[in-house]
């Protein structure tokens, strides 16, 4: 059974220049103990999708559709009820730890805050648990480090703190937003290893633009382009046999695969192209791609793509 079911999700931001259609009719399921990778480039809506699940978007945002978590419709919950789920049931590991951590609070206290709130422990017990969490993410001498401030930590270490904070209340679902962004290769390997370890037997939505990292961690992968999912399959199928021209182009633009570029740039989410959103950049586009908007259809067993080439 699926832990999280997203149906027909739309997220719209009204702005002065027009409505930004950040997420445009997304359907997605995450099963128990499934690690799903959400892949796409800057501005394709992947972070917004993550934030809409734990309802951390600004109030002016228009959200349509349904997000059902363990039988509860998250979008209908009151703020009070949502607060009980956020951090405890569903935790988000935000990107960019340097700005996500509070610079004037000791690291240990920041982790203890959530523990105190959700698990009803007193201050001292929460602090002890926080030190335990730091130890579990392999930060050396955690007792000492818990009393230090974020600026005393390196980038990789801060990322570990973010992970410890996310895991502090033992959530069933982790949303990790680009936890390896901006890290050195050697540090990245360590964080990937750690993410794999801590997400064992948990469900995770792993948001990234790094295909290598996603391949390492995820069971299934959803590829997002201009606010919608364009392909969904098991991780190995995405890499061995990508269907959608965008997925193929994305893979081929990796330096290790020959650096073949996709022409043009991603469309503005205010002024989306008609028909298939990818048609202006697609080498295989035909006349009908400009008019017909393709649906996400199952092409092979469990392998979905949104492309007129296959319909």
């Amino acid at each position: 059974m699926s832990l999280l079911t997203i149906t027909h999700l739309k997220v719209l931001f009204p702005t002065q220049d027009g409505v930004v259609k950040a997420v445009n009719t997304v359907d997605l399921k995450i099963a128990n103990a499934e690690r799903l990778g959400l892949i796409g480039e800057t501005g394709c809506g992947k972070t917004v999708l993550g934030l809409s699940i734990i309802r951390l978007l600004q109030p002016s945002t228009k959200i349509e559709g349904e997000i059902v978590y363990k039988g509860k419709e998250l979008l209908r919950l009151s703020e009070e009820e949502m607060r009980k789920i956020r951090g405890k049931e569903i935790a988000m590991i935000l990107q960019n730890p340097t700005t996500s951590l509070n610079p004037v609070l000791k690291v240990g206290d920041q982790i203890a805050e959530a523990i105190q709130l959700h698990q009803g422990l007193d201050k001292r017990a929460a602090k002890e648990k926080a030190i335990e969490m730091l130890e579990s993410v392999k930060i050396p001498s955690p007792e000492k480090r818990a009393n230090e401030y974020p600026h005393q930590f390196s980038g990789g270490m801060k990322e570990r703190v973010m992970i410890a904070m996310g895991l502090a209340c033992n959530p069933s679902l982790i949303i990790a937003d680009e936890p390896t962004k901006g890290l050195d290769v050697t540090i990245k390997v360590q964080i990937v290893k750690l993410m794999k370890e801590v997400s064992r037997r948990k469900s995770m939505l792993f948001i990234t633009h790094d295909l290598g990292v996603a391949a390492e961690i995820c069971d299934n992968i959803a590829v997002m382009y201009a606010g919608e999912l364009v392909e969904y399959a098991k991780t190995e199928d995405i890499f061995k046999n990508p269907f959608h021209p965008y997925t193929r182009g994305f893979l081929n633009s990796l330096p290790s695969r020959g650096l073949k570029q996709i022409r043009g740039i991603s469309p503005s989410l205010i002024d989306l192209p008609t028909g298939c959103r990818f048609h202006p950049r697609c080498d295989q586009a035909s006349a009908k791609c400009k008019i017909d908007h393709p649906e996400l259809v199952e092409i092979e067993n469990g392998h979905f793509a949104r492309c007129l080439l296959y319909t």
Binding site: E41, S253, L254, P255
Partner: peptide, 11 residues
């Protein structure tokens, strides 16, 4: 830069 843009700039 994103991977696909990176490819464009490097080329």
């Amino acid at each position: 830069l994103d991977v696909s843009v990176q490819a464009q700039i490097l080329n």
